[in-house]
Amino acid sequence: MNDLIKILFRLQRFIIFIILELICLYLLIQNNNIHRSSFLSSSNYVSGVLYDFKTNVSNFLDLKSTNKLLLEENTRLKNKLLLFKTNIVDTSLSHRSFKYRSANVINISVNRTKNYITIDKGSKDGIKPEMAVLSHDGIVGLVINVRSHFSTVLPIINPTFSISAKIKRNNFFGSLSWNNKSYREAVLKEIPFHAKVNIGDTIVTSGYSSIFPKEIKIGTISNFQHQDGDNFLDINVKLIVDFKQLKTVYIVENLNKEEIKTLENETTND
């Protein structure tokens, strides 16, 4: 027994090393789960405040270009408004199915194997997990972790993200995910090879989901190929959102989500 204790004592450095490495691996493997424990994420308060400060500084320097973007969007919306001027009954609030909130991006990574975004809105602003995140161009990702003032977003450029997407011109739909290499590109799978596809075709969300609104732009086809014997095409998509330039995002809540979910559950239980 004494010898055993002596041996253990001599090996204490090695044992502590192994224990700490196991803790690290445990954290790392848990991280593969989308709904991972959030106690160490950058939506926590201290790093949130620090990144908030960083964003304040860099946002100030970008004010000019942000202003320009907002002006452009404003003009576009005003033009659309003219079309609706003739409407007498305002049904936009009682019949809408999506609610938009805006948020600022305070931290983003684009060149990791697993990228995440941190935004400055949290549960106090009504953000919940599994809400869609859009920019003024198109799809950004999906809210996964929510704290009181900050939340983390799973962007398209993360290997665990995938979304149902379709080719706008002919409505063929498939599933879109990141190509794990460049932050500007994704791959669209499950498009049958007889579908007529052109370079430059727009890819939009299919709307077959209770999270993402229908017909939101994702990107354009940059190239495609068909391998012999394969029933499906390999399509490369150039993403419309430039994640390096991302400053503000919209968080979209589907107000009918509960109803859709209950209905689908009832049907599958029958």
């Binding site: 700490l20 690290c24 445990y26 954290l27 790392l28 991972r36 926590n44 201290v46």
Partner: peptide
């Protein structure tokens, strides 16, 4: 790790 959202990745490497 806390600052870069990597959960134990840096910690594993620095411990080694």
């Amino acid at each position: 790790d806390i600052f870069s959202d990597t959960y134990g990745l840096h910690a594993a490497a620095t411990t080694l």
